[in-house]
Amino acid sequence: MSATKKEILLDQMAACHNDLSWFPTFTDAVKGLTPGQAAWRSHPSSHSIWELVQHLIYWNEKWMSYFLDKETFVSIGKNNDKTFGDPDVEVNEERWNAAVQRLEAVYTEWRNVLHEYPESKFETQVPGYHDEAPWWGVLSNLCTHNAYHIGQIVLIRKLQEQGTE
């Protein structure tokens, strides 16, 4: 018996969130991270872990809003710099913990929402999307996007460790 699109999406979201699979989960990638480490940049033009987390929060919440029909898809164009948050914000313990908890919460919400919706929802087209795209394809890409940035978080942590040896 083959897995349904819904089951695959649930598996992908779990792998990004906290179900260790082929790559570190978000939960593992940020475990024990200090606000200073979250704000650190390897280069002035690079994103910090803090900014990557802000970006993941933005897109996961945005797509959740689209999925739940709370708003209609609107392209933000090619420049999505604002989705990384304010690069000059002071990353303190309170802000860092709140950001991690917010992304953890949206991953949990995604898993709950995906579980609740019927398989037929995943076959429907995303209203207003620039191409004909079914929900299963867009959400699969969202999971790939999450995995990509989680990989960046892991790389930044490795760069930080090299700098301290």
Rank of each mutant, 00 (worst) to 15 (best):
E161L: 13
S120I: 07
Y129W: 11
V113M: 00
A38E: 01
W40D: 06
R111F: 00
F84G: 06
G128F: 13
L10D: 04
E165Q: 08
Q101P: 05
E61M: 12
K82Y: 15
T83G: 04
K31A: 14
P134R: 11
S42D: 14
D69F: 06
E104N: 15
H145R: 04
L155H: 05
P35Q: 09
W136R: 05
W50H: 12
T4V: 04
M13H: 04
N112Q: 12
L56C: 07
D11L: 09
P87M: 05
H115R: 15
T144W: 04
E93D: 14
W59H: 05
G36Q: 15
A99V: 10
V89T: 07
R41M: 02
L52I: 15
I150T: 07
V100L: 06
Q160M: 15
T124N: 12
E93T: 13
V30I: 12
W22L: 02
W50V: 01
D69E: 14
R41K: 15
Q37M: 15
N92D: 15
G137E: 10
H145L: 03
K31Y: 06
A38H: 00
A3Q: 14
Y107K: 08
W110N: 01
D69M: 06
I8R: 08
W63V: 02
Y129A: 10
P118I: 05
I49F: 02
I153F: 09
N18Q: 06
Y107Q: 12
S75Q: 08
L10C: 03
P24N: 10
Y58G: 09
W110S: 03
C143N: 11
T4P: 08
A105E: 07
E132D: 14
